[in-house]
Design a protein around this nucleic acid. Structure first.
Lengths: 162, 162
DNA sequence: CAATATTGATCAGTATGCTGATTATCAGTA
DNA sequence: TACTGATAATCAGCATACTGATCAATATTG
């Protein structure tokens, strides 16, 4: 009988479970109320002002239907604004607000601390190796999920390489 | 600016996302309708007949409140029975049904295939190392989540080591 | 230009996963 | 035995994640 500890799927779930718990603990203690997903979205929009929701989904590998709710809540909190695009009336352009940028700056140390805490059982070399192996496994499996990573940024769209 | 690819939390989410997608793809193709969580619960109950829900939660590191719904759906599908314990009227004893055992046997090849598929980008040595590092990181972070792994089995409860 | 296909966003529905509260029961003790 | 505390299960509520459908707008093609 195969043990749970030999099942990569089980270990993946457990590691992610701990990662989320650590994120919440650090962020709450710092006085912020943001989930890991909301943080990732906010950071991606900050780096790519004016992205539409589909592109945002690709940048951080979310499902497109999940984005709607996440953006709703970030707008609700006043950290984002969502406006109809003038170039494509189907699309919504996302912009971070001053409040959103302030939150992003203020939360950074807590996020950093969380990333370290979730690897506290490993040496620095082991941590690097874990990240390398995760990246490699993810790259090979990217297209297997409904929400693959898409590196197409808004800028790349506007100014195609050719 | 730190890239998402350097954030263990982000990589954890992506790897788990792919793991779940691969699990569903393989299991659906084999003609079964079970989620990863339902499979883990069913397997644990098969190995520990008569467990109560709290012990089950500890065995596979779920939150206790999540178990209720998962067990509901497995009972609904006829794969489990849930009976009030005679020893402790608060507790529910979980037993796998013949149908449940048949499902567990039939689904095994698909589950095996999924576990391999999610590591297809890695060599055998890398896969082993990834699992080792995940186990180590998880062991160090076990108590940080609300749903830590508890190795106390029903048998261990009935016959304490001392 | 008209028919067709595609795309961005949203929605309904289902299943995790969590926080915090409640209920019923059990265990220990004065 | 009455009181106190702990425990098993459930519930309400919220936030991911997904499948599949729908709607509006855009792009493509005959």
């Amino acid at each position: 009988m195969k043990d749970n500890n030999d099942m990569p799927g089980h270990l993946a779930r457990r590691f992610q479970q701990i990662a989320v718990a650590v994120f919440h603990a650090e962020v709450d203690e710092a006085g912020y109320d943001l989930t890991p997903v909301q943080y990732a979205a906010l950071a991606a929009i900050s780096t790519n002002p004016g992205v539409d929701q589909i592109t945002l989904a690709g940048l951080i590998a979310y499902d497109r239907t999940t984005i709607t709710g996440v953006v709703d809540r970030l707008v609700q909190k006043g950290l984002l604004v969502r406006n109809a695009s003038t170039k494509d009336r189907r699309a919504r352009e996302l912009q971070i607000t001053d409040e959103g940028r302030k939150t992003l700056d203020g939360i950074a140390p807590a996020v950093e601390a969380a990333q370290e805490l979730m690897l506290r059982g490993l040496t620095a070399e082991e941590a690097d190796e874990l990240l390398r192996l995760l990246r490699k496994a993810i790259a090979a499996g990217n297209e297997l999920s409904r929400a693959p990573l898409r590196e197409t940024s808004v800028t790349a769209k506007a100014k195609p390489a050719t």
